[in-house]
Design a protein around this nucleic acid. Sequence first.
DNA 1: TTGTACGCGTTATCAG
DNA 2: CTGATAACGCGTACAA
Lengths: 337, 337
Amino acid sequence: MTERGSARERPTLEMVASHAGVSRATVSRVVNGSESVAPHLRAVVMRSVEVLGYVPNQAARSLVTQRTDALALVVPEPDSRIFSDDPFFPGIIHGVSAELEAAGKQLVLIMSASGESHARVERYAAGGHVDGVMLFSIHGEDPLPATLVRLGIPVVCNGRPLGETALPYVDAENEGGAAEAVRYLRSRGRSRIATIAGPQDMVAGIDRLNGYLSALEGAPPLIAYGEFTRASGSAAMRELLATAPDLDAVFAASDLMADGALRMLRQAGRRVPDDVAVIGFDDNVVAAFADPPLTTVRQPIQDLGRGLARQLLRLLDGEDVEDAYMLPTQLVIRESA
Amino acid sequence: MTERGSARERPTLEMVASHAGVSRATVSRVVNGSESVAPHLRAVVMRSVEVLGYVPNQAARSLVTQRTDALALVVPEPDSRIFSDDPFFPGIIHGVSAELEAAGKQLVLIMSASGESHARVERYAAGGHVDGVMLFSIHGEDPLPATLVRLGIPVVCNGRPLGETALPYVDAENEGGAAEAVRYLRSRGRSRIATIAGPQDMVAGIDRLNGYLSALEGAPPLIAYGEFTRASGSAAMRELLATAPDLDAVFAASDLMADGALRMLRQAGRRVPDDVAVIGFDDNVVAAFADPPLTTVRQPIQDLGRGLARQLLRLLDGEDVEDAYMLPTQLVIRESA
DNA sequence: TTGTACGCGTTATCAG
DNA sequence: CTGATAACGCGTACAA
């Protein structure tokens, strides 16, 4: 059994003040790095702070400053991209966290299942727990962002919001990246180009499909849908092979789906890229390890996270930010196409 | 450009009180669900709360209650398991988050690079931002946990801590699981069993190697080391094939490394499982999709997260908790062994 | 059952 | 440049 360490009394400003023989105000000034305090007093105070191990009480501080220096990242719980082996979620967190650390802010992670859980998020933000909110891939007609904005809480979305509300967001050039992939396939002489599209209630799924369609330039579309997962990619590929046995290329809206497609193609006896060229999206870790190594559209996941945090920080500073903060994608050519 | 929503004044207890025609104390009691308040007054107050959209100010509240209802999860930044396609980190988060939500607590995620960043964590916890701390895979002689305990902050570790300090922790039966895998291989007639071990500065790496060694029962060990990643698994497999061409089985300390090994074996012309049997660890999503599907030792990642949170909550409630909270593993047999 | 009044630990204002 | 002192918003003994 382990005991709860002996809860030594936390020293207060008051205690530091009397220890140093100055007023609380002076201690506060030293702690907050004010210029206007005599060097010798500052030294004395700093020593007392050191000796007593003083740490400012955040609750008291934010009660008066009206800030918490904490920002929330709200994540929709049952999101297939989050608990799969798609490192998208960890990547975003990594970026966000790096940016917030540099700014001295803390990250509060909130998993929000759905409707009723949304009320919790609202109350949480409204209660002043955090200074602002980052929203992860908002689905359809979610009222959450609008509510938050109405409450006066700065909000930035990761991924273009689908509804009407004009919220600032950061996103990758999904449509452009997809279009580039398809154009590349055409430039290599492929003519029967299919796509494995993502879910059409996610903006990434929609935009990448649009990119595919736009780059087709009149050629007949060939579409199957997946859920961004490997299994769904395999299933979609099987479907495509059945309906269009003569296809010679596939653009999948995620690397995981592309990997699933690769397996199905192998199983069906098609050679990649000789018979069928395959391009994925993400530049997931698995892309380089796929068989054959996967040509794909890289999106800068970590930068997406950084941008998300940065835009929110700017909002907090009272700056205006552009509604759309788009990050470029890049075609990474390996062996599958 | 997007404006910062008009910051409507947040209603206070005071305002609700005067709106309802009662004292602040009564409002406070209603809000906190006290029994001792007349039904009709409660109704009136609740209406006022509704009308005004009152939400308690968390800073003020925790200033007096000395609690924040927030718990921190501290994650070592440059951890290969976190930003790879190993869903270990997301899985833990999922479990932790589910448990905390049920308890009405919030999750604060802290990425802690190392030394200097540790000071930040200490100050953060000491500042009363959170009521307790969950520590992710503590490396070697990290002084952080001891410091936190000294500060009187409840701490629980994910993964057995390597140092001397006796901290409560939750972990999977790494050693037992590894031993079971090796025993299974032996029972299937394999005699030259190698292992691809994980990093020996991580408890998971150490324990799984020990499990392998213990189950060998005198047979000569055959060891190569990896970093839990696919690439390192391939490299380690190559090494093993060079030093022990006659091996007939491999136990890898992670599915990712096992997958890497599978590729290397294929490349070397060895058939799996005919020539060489392979077992991994984790039951990562990729295991089922490996070629051939990977026999592996499943660890209940999400339960690990839940247990982590649960133990901390118990500590917070003043209960004593056992130092070691171990979760069982399970051998999942597929085709690779 | 209800209200009064005090204190939680800081920051900010305003004299000195 | 320094020190009183007033908020900040809430929970809770204590009194009524």
